[in-house]
């Protein structure tokens, strides 16, 4: 889960890393109420839209203000300005830190090395990706044991950041830029492991309510539901290779219940797909229970459903579906062909 910059900076400053002084505001009323605190930051000051998407600077999510009045008017503008479709959680108003040098530093978990690793460059800033591509020799990578390869003035900060990374179950901690002029972190991108939220209570308030399935909206019009991420992706791929586009990715997981199946169908229905393909294949999924859920949804909706179902009690499941004239198939390729043929027949793809 991504956390906002202001949350990340709070973590840093609590563990002894210098960050700019700041005030977080969530409305114009906040700004008026916190006038004296905001003025204490001095002018010019920096206004930073609190969004979770990257590349905010280039997308106009950062502004500079010379006076309190300007801070008020610029904030009103920023509150309403979506960055890559995302409206800000609030605005972080910060003191301006004059600086020349910008370094890049990040810590993440390298899945191939199976180690926590850092990436460092003395050429940080908004063009770091270009640096990594064009001058890879300017990038230093290593594990905690390699901190001695970093500038000696930075080793203390690097050690603290590794501690923060581990203590708070982070999966990414990126500081870009870090300015060595004032030894200050000017930005902080922090991702926390969703699976560790049970022991990171401080982060729970930022967590979205968990749905019992994993859902991603896509841009096509054939709904896709299945059990298991791999099989759902494979179903999407087949539909696409046959010439239509999937409307979504929805994984109901293994052992899905009747309730979860119905709520998944309702979720996909909201996207107004031309039809829904369900690829239910499982060892522990009770086929008859899923079939009953599909029948129940089918009674209240005339959305065409195409079902592939195997697993425990699969014969019973097929019987239930056929009884209600729902299209049911034995393998996934057939399922995808049939749903695509239907979509083509009704000129929906």
């Amino acid at each position: 889960m991504k956390l906002h910059e202001f949350v990340g900076k709070k973590l840093l400053s609590e563990r002894g890393i210098s960050v700019p002084k700041s005030v977080l505001v969530r409305s114009s009323e906040d700004i008026l109420k916190l006038k004296s605190d905001i003025e204490k930051l001095g002018f010019p000051q920096v206004l930073k839209s609190q969004v979770l998407v990257g590349g905010r600077m280039k997308k106009g999510g950062i502004a500079f203000s010379e006076s309190f009045e300007e801070t008020l008017s610029l904030s009103e503008y920023l509150f309403k300005k979506p960055i890559s479709g995302e409206l800000p959680f609030g605005i972080l108003i910060e003191e301006m830190i004059e600086h020349e040098k910008e370094w890049y530093f990040s810590i993440s978990i390298n899945p191939i090395e199976r180690e926590i690793m850092f990436i460092f460059s003395e050429m940080g800033g908004i063009d770091i990706e270009k640096v990594a591509k064009e001058s890879p020799e300017k990038i230093i990578k290593g594990t905690e044991r390699d901190i001695n390869k970093l500038p000696s003035t930075f080793s203390d900060v690097a050690e603290k950041l590794f501690k923060i990374f581990k203590k708070y179950d982070l999966t990414l901690l990126e500081i870009n830029p870090f300015t060595p002029d004032k030894m200050t972190a000017l930005d902080a991108v922090v991702h926390i492991d969703d699976n560790a939220l049970f022991r990171q209570k401080w982060a729970q308030e930022f967590a979205e309510k968990k749905k019992p399935y994993h859902f991603v909206k896509l841009d096509g019009n054939i709904g896709v539901i299945g059990c298991g991420a791999g099989i759902v992706m494979a179903t999407m791929d087949l539909i696409k290779s046959l010439g239509c586009k999937p409307a979504d990715f929805l994984d109901i997981g293994g052992g899905a219940s009747k309730e979860v199946t119905i709520s998944a169908l309702e979720e996909v229905k909201k996207l107004s797909p031309v039809a829904i393909a369900l690829n239910i294949f499982g060892g522990i999924t009770k086929g008859d229970e899923v079939a009953k859920a599909i029948v129940e949804f089918h009674k209240n909706n005339d959305l065409p459903l195409f079902v592939r179902i195997t697993g425990t009690n699969e014969d019973e499941a097929r019987r239930i579906l056929e009884e209600h004239s729902i299209n049911v198939y034995e393998d996934m390729e057939r399922l995808c062909k049939e749903v695509v043929n239907y979509a083509k027949e009704v000129k929906a793809c």
């Binding site: 994993h214 991603v216 791999g230 759902v232 992706m233 290779s241 586009k245």
Partner: peptide, 16 residues
């Protein structure tokens, strides 16, 4: 699997 998965979206698995 995932030929047509959009960039930057997590597709079910934490690794995907």
């Amino acid at each position: 699997a995932g030929r047509y998965a959009p960039k930057g979206k997590r597709m079910g698995h934490a690794g995907a």
